[in-house]
Amino acid sequence: MIAENTQIQMRKGILEYCVLSIISKGEIYASDIIAELKRAELLVVEGTLYPLLTRLKNNGLLSYSWKESTSGPPRKYYQITEEGLHVLHRLDETWKELVYAVETSVAGRNKPNEEQPQ
C-alpha cells in the first residue's frame, strides 16, 4: 500500500510536468495530449486529464479557445500562458535537481547488494 501511494504521488507530479511541457509546444487538443502521453508511455485515461487541465487553467497556467470541429461539437484547444511558461521553467529546474538527486542516490546501489546478497 505504501509503495502504491508513493507511486501515485510520483506519477501525479510528473503527469502535471509532462502535460505542461506538451502544451508549451503549441495549441493542442485534449485527446492529442493523451496521444502524446501514450507515445511517452505514461499511461492515463482521458478522464484523468480533464480535472488536471481545469485545475491548471484555473490557476492561470493555461488558457483555451474554442475551435470548430468537423466531427462533433467545437473543441477546446489549450495554450500555455506567460505564467504557465514561468512555472514550467521553474519545474524544469526542479526536475534537473530531482534527476541529479535520484541519480546520485541510486548510483552504486546495486553494487553492495551484488557483493552481499541477502
Binding site: 466531427s71 462533433g72 461539437p73
Partner: peptide, 20 residues
C-alpha cells in the same frame, strides 16, 4: 471544485467520440 466544467469537458469528448 469546477465539477461542472470537468463534466462538460467529459460530455463534450464523449459526444465527439460518438460522432466519430
Amino acid at each position: 471544485q469546477d465539477s461542472e466544467e470537468i463534466l462538460m469537458d467529459i460530455e463534450n469528448r464523449i459526444a465527439e467520440m460518438f460522432s466519430e
